[in-house]
Nucleic acid binder design. Structure first.
Lengths: 149, 149
DNA sequence: ATTGGGTACGTTATGTTATTACGTTGGTCA
DNA sequence: TGACCAACGTAATAACATAACGTACCCAAT
């Protein structure tokens, strides 16, 4: 349970460390790794990776943050209302790190149907696409004029 | 490109290291990490992680092996015929490491439609489920009688 | 008010996964 | 033959993640 006194810069109900980490993830505007978060929070008193991992794990459990498995990084959930058991689909641009989040009930149903057929119990689902966003694929022929990940 | 002379224990057209690594992955019957592969191949002259990573990357490019992103491990592709641009869906049992591979055109179409709508170019797609297989979830109430991952 | 449980925290150390950098080998082909 | 290219070998290091310990604090039951 959250520390009752803390009220983070973004959301209340988070502990101090959770709020710091969430804030850093939000500010990044793209997936950010644990050690990069650590680097940014050292000036604010965070000293070790464990502290980051503890906080992101809480945030993930709350559903506020997603882990991008394919790049070992974390990103703010941009899905407005709470997920009702829906699978999060993430597309990440190789070029600029932009992330688009999506949900698709049809996909969820297809996966559930498959699970029933194979008689296994689904615990978690991760769907991740690597892509070039419109801007980055449009710029493909030009020199590298924009910031890369 | 493959080394022209080598013919591995499993498939021809692979280099010696690729064949060794593939063989180890196949023998494992479940996802196996790079360092575990390394451990098994040390007696056969492989000395460093790079050699493993080079080989698995080639095998992945050939489509012979999949990387399971969510657990940083590698598994033999069990899809019979060559994939026609299909997305691989993997379900991995937490209990015993069993893997089931699947493909679903409907899911592929939904993701493609989404990509079109958002105007990005898909490069790769990873769909991974963590699950308990029928055997492991049936055994849930019993003591740990079977080998765990 | 004391005590015991639970949660987050801090710190150190270590374990695990992956890549960079650089030089060598051996086959291909003009 | 010699330029090229792909795979290989080796050492070092980077990047990601957890274990194991003890402390601080709130809360609820005694």
């Amino acid at each position: 349970m959250p520390h009752p006194l803390s009220a983070g810069p973004i959301l209340s109900g988070l502990t101090k460390n959770q709020a710091l980490v969430l804030d850093t993830i939000v500010m990044a505007h793209k997936p950010i790794g644990a050690y990069e978060i650590l680097g940014k929070l050292k000036p604010r008193g965070i000293k070790s990776p464990v502290q980051i991992y503890r906080a992101v794990n809480s945030l993930i459990q709350c559903g506020i943050v997603h882990k991008v498995e394919s790049i070992n990084a974390f990103v703010r959930c941009t899905h407005g209302h709470p997920h009702h058991g829906q699978t999060t689909i993430l597309a990440i641009c190789d070029g600029c790190g932009a992330v688009v989040e999506h949900h698709d009930d049809t996909v969820d149903r297809r996966l559930e149907a498959w699970a029933r057929q194979e008689a296994f119990e689904v615990e978690t689902v991760a769907i991740e696409l690597k892509m070039r966003c419109a801007r980055c694929s449009g710029l493909a022929s030009l020199a590298t004029t924009k910031t890369q990940v």
